[in-house]
Amino acid sequence: MLTDTNRPGTNVRSKASSARRHDDAPDTAELFARLAALDDGPERDAIRDRLVTSWLPMAHRIASRFRDRGESVEDLRQVAALGLVKAIDRFDPERGAFESYAVPTITGEVKRHFRDRMWALRVPRRVQELRNKVRVARRELTQTPGSPEPSTADIAAHTGLTEDEVAAGLEALESFSTLSLDAELSADEDGYSLADTLGGPDGSYDVVIDRESAKEGLRRLPERERTILYMRFFEDMTQSRIADQLGISQMHVSRLISRSCAQVREEVLGQRRARGRSAGQRPAA
């Protein structure tokens, strides 16, 4: 039977379809049909393994698109293979060609790997997307040998992003890895590390917290006890001098100071325990 090759549309679809197919896209429609008809068991597992073996080169091809991004090709291939297995398990032969379903499934698995596993810092997805756009733009703008490094304005004009968005994307380019606190920041003989630039703990903050916690307890003390504590701890007066000014014995001053401090301390600890119990009580969903 002859085919009218001059008739519009004749064989165009088949030619376009074959042009889109890759060498690593085998014809496995019959295997997928058999897989869909089988229940779990050795025969189904064997067919599934055959499909994985047949389509694995395609998964490797997709993985190779993501090389030079800080992850080894072997690890990327393993991630792509996992995406392939998921695609085979979820594919419905009645809904089209396997390649059309598998390519976005495998690509998505590799992208999730970068998003969830490769970032040393937790970066919002929006910033990750900016990073990818900036990275692609830089590569496109420097394709010509001798091209200068594009500026923030150049990348913004190329991508349609604002300069602030480009700046966020450029900063995110460095977020795949973190710098050790022991890393040298200077090449001089008197070099220093990042840890050397960090400040030490400030004990004054603890004093502020303690004072704020004790304020309420101090306000509830009788006026005489508050006066004694002020004279002792803020004016640095001795117990004997306080006793002389108030006309009481030094022993009585000592007892009042001990009793007042114990009362304030107990109130502060009680407040902390109450806050702890309140934080531990979660409202019912």
Rank of each mutant, 00 (worst) to 15 (best):
T3K: 15
T5S: 12
T5C: 15
T5A: 09
T10S: 14
N11I: 11
K15S: 09
A16W: 08
A19E: 08
A19C: 02
R21I: 04
D23F: 05
A25H: 04
P26N: 00
D27L: 05
E30G: 04
F32G: 01
F32N: 00
A33W: 12
A33Q: 08
R34D: 14
A36Q: 07
R44D: 05
D45T: 12
R48Y: 04
R48A: 07
D49W: 02
T53D: 12
T53S: 07
M58C: 12
A59M: 01
H60Y: 07
R61I: 01
A63R: 03
F66C: 00
R69M: 00
G70C: 01
E71G: 02
A80F: 01
A81G: 14
G83T: 04
L84I: 06
D89F: 13
D89R: 12
D92W: 03
D92Y: 03
P93A: 03
E94K: 07
E94T: 09
R95C: 04
G96I: 02
F98G: 00
A102T: 00
V103W: 08
K111A: 13
H113D: 01
H113C: 01
H113K: 02
F114A: 03
R115M: 01
D116K: 05
R117K: 08
W119L: 10
P124V: 02
R126Q: 10
R126D: 13
R126V: 12
Q128I: 13
E129N: 10
N132C: 07
K133A: 07
K133L: 13
K133P: 03
V136K: 14
R138E: 06
R139Y: 11
T142S: 06
Q143N: 03
Q143I: 05
T144F: 04
P145Q: 07
P145R: 06
T152K: 14
D154I: 04
A156Q: 06
H158L: 02
H158M: 05
L161Y: 06
E165H: 13
E165K: 15
L170G: 05
L170T: 08
L170R: 11
L173M: 13
L179R: 12
S180H: 10
E184D: 12
L185F: 08
A187C: 15
G191Y: 09
Y192D: 11
Y192R: 09
L194Q: 12
G199Y: 15
G199C: 15
G200S: 11
D202P: 02
G203S: 13
S204H: 05
Y205N: 09
V207D: 04
E216C: 03
E223Q: 10
R224I: 14
E225H: 10
I228L: 05
Y230W: 08
Y230F: 13
R232I: 00
F234M: 09
I242C: 07
L246T: 02
L246K: 01
Q250K: 08
H252K: 10
S254K: 15
L256S: 11
C261D: 04
V264L: 00
E266H: 12
E267W: 04
L269R: 03
Q271W: 12
R273K: 14
R275C: 11
G276P: 05
R277P: 03
R277W: 08
S278T: 11
S278F: 09
A279E: 14
A285G: 10
